[in-house]
């Protein structure tokens, strides 16, 4: 009788363990739409932060959910994925937002020159600040 109980409890533990392991292994990606922004900022300010001190800006912004506001300077579609470029005070740099597949369908409604608020995950700075998995918050 005792042996049976021990075997049973080991079995239950093993099943629980594998369920937890499976859950961790299949942990979902962050859904930007469901999360609140960590930082709300203008396109010009985030670019200025990166161009003045990239190391500090990396610590502050990387992998954070950023809500950025700016004027659209370009809208394009690359391999079915929408890309919105927000212009800044700087002539050479901008904020490039790569949209999610779902949001990419909205790009026909966006026009150059309009003010837009976009939320996405910052992955860093090359010539421009890059946001991925972005969604469009407002369309004025």
């Amino acid at each position: 009788m005792k042996a049976k109980k021990i075997i049973l409890s080991i079995l239950i533990l093993a099943v629980l363990g594998s369920i937890i392991a499976y859950k961790i292994y299949n942990k979902p990606h962050i859904n930007v739409a469901d999360e609140n922004a960590d930082i709300t900022i203008s396109a010009s300010t985030i670019l200025a932060d990166f161009s003045s001190d990239e190391t500090t800006a990396n610590k502050k912004y990387l992998e954070k959910i950023i809500q950025v506001k700016g004027q659209v300077s370009d809208v394009s579609l690359s391999n079915g994925k929408g890309i919105v470029t927000l212009q800044t005070d700087d002539d050479f740099g901008s904020v490039i937002c790569h949209l999610t597949d779902k949001e990419s369908t909205k790009i026909s409604e966006i026009s150059k020159g309009q003010e837009l608020i976009i939320k996405g995950i910052c992955t860093g700075f090359l010539m421009d600040v890059i946001l991925v998995k972005s969604i469009i918050i407002n369309q004025q």
Binding site: N26, H29, I30, E63, T123, G124, L126, I130, V132
Partner: peptide
């Protein structure tokens, strides 16, 4: 060529 390492997107969040 410049590549941002954090821009690599994986199927599973854990792998990333």
């Amino acid at each position: 060529i410049s590549i941002l390492m954090k821009s690599f997107m994986f199927e599973k969040a854990l792998m990333q």
